[in-house]
């Protein structure tokens, strides 16, 4: 990987500062958009991290939902304040990731994707069927006495996104980057290179799972309400893959650019078809299909191509 250009570093730093400053400008609409972009960027980075190792996740709502429940339950049942409650969320997400990696040790491609899909659905059923713990289908409200204020939550999410981006960057600069790419292209070859795929797999999925869970946890504090349908919403899974695909899969800036583009696109379609239910997601699906067909390298690929010309 080439060292990033000065302009790229500058742009990344500017984006990080903007994400951190926006919540203090006193513009609720902009703060909301900032929140959504950062939350989406986190799961997109997490998804892209796994995809980079050849692991296509169709179950990011599992990490997201688990993190949400871990945070809210540790707050409600143990009285954990906001920041403390994020710790069990991160741990739970990491463990789920590592556990899934161990369990699905030999599975690749489509088989792995299906097992993640089934996991998120299984967790949803579990959350519904354990009403004593989760409130079941009736849902669960966050203990409002613990609410840390909007500013703390609005600041936490860009911090989370920045940390996620830095982790992804660190991985791409480390000696593991090569091994992960080898895993994506051919696991047999990576074994011959002396890479133990299962160890990398556990590692990458633990990190990716923790990031997605953290995003879910912060979002749960933001929303203040959870039920199995909200926590394990298929929409989360879809968002987690649309953003990196749109931005540029396997690239560092891809998930972030994709997150910005996705939210911008969402706002745009909402402004355009606001009243018509379903249209915006319909257009979303069309974009996903179109991007896979004509722009498999995403916006980043498009940028690189136009620059080379």
């Amino acid at each position: 990987m080439n060292p990033p250009s000065a302009a790229a570093i500058l742009l990344a730093v500017a984006a990080a500062i903007a994400a951190l400053v926006i919540p203090f400008l006193g513009m609720p609409l902009l703060t909301d958009i900032d929140f959504r972009i950062c939350a989406l960027a986190m799961i997109a980075i997490s998804w892209n991290m796994m995809a980079g190792a050849g692991l296509v996740s169709l179950g990011h709502s599992a990490f997201w939902g688990l993190g949400s429940y871990a945070a809210i339950l540790s707050a409600n049942d143990l009285g954990a304040p906001f920041v403390v409650s994020l710790v069990p969320a991160v741990v739970a997400g990491g463990l789920l990731g590592a556990g899934l990696a161990r369990m699905t040790g030999r599975l690749r491609g489509i088989y792995f994707a299906i097992s993640t899909l089934a996991t998120s659905e299984g967790l949803r059923v579990l959350a519904t069927m354990l009403p004593d713990l989760t409130g079941g289908g009736n849902g669960l409200y966050l203990d409002s006495t613990l609410f840390p204020g909007n500013a703390a939550i609005s600041l936490a999410i860009p911090c989370g996104a920045i940390v996620a981006a830095l982790i992804a960057w660190a991985i791409s600069r480390s000696r593991y980057a090569f091994a992960l790419r080898a895993m994506r292209n051919n696991e047999a070859a990576s074994q011959m290179l002396g890479v133990a795929p299962i160890r990398f797999r556990v590692g990458i999925m633990a990190v990716a799972g923790a990031i997605a869970s953290l995003a879910g946890a912060i979002n749960a504090w933001h929303g203040g309400y959870l039920d199995p349908g909200v926590a394990f919403d298929l929409k989360t899974t879809i968002d987690a893959q649309i953003a990196p695909i749109l931005g540029g899969v396997y690239t560092l800036p891809g998930p972030i650019i994709g997150a910005i583009a996705t939210i911008a696109f969402e706002e745009f379609t909402r402004a355009l078809f606001g009243g018509m239910v379903g249209i915006s997601l319909l257009v979303f699906g069309l974009v996903l299909v179109a991007v896979v067909l004509v722009l498999p390298q995403g916006l980043v690929g498009l940028l690189r191509k136009t620059r080379r010309r």
């Binding site: 379903g278 319909l282 699906g285 069309l286 996903l288």
Partner: peptide
């Protein structure tokens, strides 16, 4: 993506 389109 096709699923998403048909659903909506």
């Amino acid at each position: 993506g096709i699923a998403l389109v048909l659903q909506h």
